[in-house]
Design a protein around this nucleic acid. Structure first.
Lengths: 163, 163
DNA sequence: TATTGTTATACTCTATAACTATA
DNA sequence: TATAGTTATAGAGTATAACAATA
């Protein structure tokens, strides 16, 4: 949040505690609650691959936009340079990503995925799809698409705002 | 609430950084992103009253269910006993809530709002309503209700689950 | 023994500031 | 001078464990 948003990473599980009816009139309160639960569950699912949601996000960005620098990755993830260092440190330790010297700018690193990184990403994508299927199972296909579309509209509108 | 929900309280503002298109296929990723923005904005709005979203949540619960104990409040907020102490410390310091001895159990505190606390809660409720109106302005009334209903359905389904 | 509130402590995630090596 | 990456450090928010008072 701020990935604060991604606070409450894989730390302590606040599982259980349902949202109080006192807040159910606020759409944003429900939004926050559901986002938390979804994150917790997906995080638990990803733990079988030994990675966090932020690391999964990093793998996704590197695969899609790589090779790219740490600054560029941090921008896509919405995190600081120094935080990016830690994320890549861990991915490199796990053998999922590599830092290479960028030939055109020797200050920068060119980030790429290893073969294992690509495999892990594919597995994580599968887990993500399963987690979504489970989480939105109470809705029909049409309703689920409707929800996605409404949320997407809000995102697009936010990006248009001057603020 | 689960905080985490409320992590990323009013700390550093990562405003700006939009969600990467790389994640837009996941409804839960959008959910997390929107929840973050909504929380940030509401938090900024509440800062005029000198309180955080968690403190606002506490005021709401005390007004609705009070007098109640700190344990009970913590349960409603989804936070630990020790964290509850800090929340109440601050509310008491601001003159918004009071700890009284519960006559039936002298270990416990009976939490109540002061008059100023009730006034602050009313102001905060107004700010919350305004924040919601602004945030969901891109949607029509019908769409906004639809969104709320879909999210509410997910919450209800989650509570039914054995897990 | 169990529970309420409290305190001390530790842990996680993150950012800020200062440093280095390049540019 | 400015920028990419790194490191050391600090802060916010939270939980865990131990304790006193009470049940």
């Amino acid at each position: 949040m701020p990935s604060e948003e991604d606070k409450l990473q894989g730390t302590h599980s606040s599982r259980g505690s349902p949202i109080s009816p006192a807040f159910s009139r606020w759409t944003s309160a429900i939004l926050n609650y559901l986002a938390l639960i979804a994150r917790e569950r997906f995080c638990a699912s990803l733990s079988t691959l030994q990675i966090s949601t932020k690391q999964y996000a990093a793998l996704t960005i590197i695969a899609m936009y790589g090779p790219l620098t740490q600054i560029e990755l941090g921008r896509q993830l919405g995190i600081d340079r120094s935080t990016t260092v830690l994320v890549i440190d861990e991915l490199e330790r796990l053998g999922l990503a590599e830092r290479r010297r960028d030939p055109r700018d020797r200050r920068a690193h060119a980030l790429t995925l290893t073969e294992k990184g690509q495999e892990t990403l594919a597995s994580a994508d599968k887990l993500a799809a399963e987690a979504e299927d489970e989480f939105y199972a109470p809705l029909s296909s049409a309703e689920r698409e409707q929800l996605h579309a409404l949320l997407q509209r809000l995102v697009v509108s936010l990006e248009r705002e001057p603020e």
